[in-house]
């Protein structure tokens, strides 16, 4: 009885909320994941452009060519989608309205970068893939400068 009364009183009192676990409070964001995916897009685009079809009608050679071509396309599309998702996470979860004061071009940069992901997914276009890398680099610079850091832009390839 007493316990129940105490419990009831406790639950009437104003209290601050504390989070035990929630969606992404870890605050761990890094544009590196978008960069790695964008690099893969550029790499697959270059490989596709360099891939020469076999001469003649050798069935096995054509099978190998078609298989390799399909794989390159599949990876390129998957990584372009991945780049877009990683960028959207930074755009919608990491960057806050107050960042707009420092980076007025923030929305435009992300929007164009997301569009480039689509263009790279649909086409085999090395110029677009290189533009995408430049867009990710711009986002990298904004991201780290928002944290008061100036981490160098490093690529794997």
């Amino acid at each position: 009885m007493l316990r129940s009364v105490v419990q009831r009183i406790l639950h009437q009192l104003p209290a601050t909320q504390a989070a035990a676990h929630c969606d992404g409070p870890c605050g761990v964001y890094d544009p590196a994941s978008a960069r790695v995916a964008a690099e893969a897009v550029l790499s697959m685009t270059k490989k596709l452009l360099a891939l020469a079809p076999p001469e003649g009608n050798d069935a096995a050679a054509w099978a190998t060519y078609n298989n390799t071509f399909s794989r390159y396309v599949a990876v390129k599309e998957e990584q372009a989608q991945e780049t877009k998702e990683e960028l959207l996470i930074l755009w919608t979860d990491y960057f806050k309205p107050e960042h707009l004061a420092t980076f007025p071009e923030l929305h435009d940069t992300f929007w164009k970068a997301a569009k480039l992901c689509s263009a790279c997914k649909v086409n085999i276009d090395q110029a677009k893939a290189e533009e995408l890398m430049q867009a990710v680099e711009k986002i990298h610079t904004m991201f780290w400068s928002s944290k008061g850091r100036s981490d160098a832009w490093v690529t794997a390839s």
Binding site: T16, Q17, A18, A19, A20, H21, P25, C26, G27, V28
Partner: peptide, 25 residues
């Protein structure tokens, strides 16, 4: 307070470190 975003957390202390507490859920 969350070390990165200042959110108020509730966690259990796991072990003492030189520079603070290692906490776990």
């Amino acid at each position: 307070r969350h070390p990165l975003d200042e959110q108020l957390l509730i966690k259990r202390l796991s072990k003492r470190c030189a520079d603070g507490w290692w906490v776990l859920g």
